[in-house]
């Protein structure tokens, strides 16, 4: 089962990533990104971490994507012709995915070619919210704090580059 989820999620992420880069309009690129996020949620599910899978969908595919679309809308960039000149390779790529899924799904019943499951027994509490919190605020505390600094720097940088003198709220 884990093997099936792995290949399914991997295919979704690949397809979503390639299509995101290839799409001409920012909005459809953002929508393809959702597919990629859903694929990574499937990977977390395959890793026996349902909490992270749900978070991935709620936070990334949900909240952050809404923010992305909001920003795209606010920027009001030049609307690119969505269809003109679109690369056509996504059609065979899209056709490959169901084929791959069928292949993966049927491989289970081919003797000697079964998909590997999750090896061994999991430690108690694996993938539970408690364990995630322990890792985040225990072992990886420094990384957690550094990420907040990275975000502050990114906000300062974005504000400095994106604003012009007249629109700064405090001037």
């Amino acid at each position: 089962m884990e093997g099936f989820l792995f290949y399914l999620g991997g295919a979704m992420m690949l397809l979503g990533g390639v299509a995101m880069v290839a799409s001409r309009s920012a909005v459809s690129a953002a929508c393809w990104l959702v597919l990629s996020f859903l694929g990574s949620a499937a990977l977390f599910a395959a890793l026996q971490a349902p909490f992270l899978a749900v978070l991935q969908i709620l936070v990334y595919a949900g909240a952050i994507m809404v923010l992305f679309l909001f920003v795209i809308m606010m920027l009001e960039g030049p609307v690119m012709p969505a269809e003109a000149g679109r690369p056509k390779f996504w059609i065979p790529a899209g056709a490959l995915v169901p084929a791959a899924i069928i292949l993966v799904a049927t491989a289970r019943w081919v003797p000697g070619a079964g998909l590997p499951g999750f090896p061994g027994d999991l430690p108690p509490g694996f993938g539970q919210p408690v364990r995630v919190a322990q890792l985040l605020l225990g072992e990886y505390l420094l990384a957690f704090e550094l990420i907040s600094i990275v975000l502050v720097v990114a906000i300062i940088g974005a504000l400095a580059l994106g604003s012009n003198e007249r629109t700064l709220p405090w001037k």
Binding site: I149, V150, V153, G157, L161
Partner: peptide, 10 residues
Amino acid sequence: IETMSLAVYA
């Protein structure tokens, strides 16, 4: 690297 780079980009 990211903290350094993001600051220097700006």
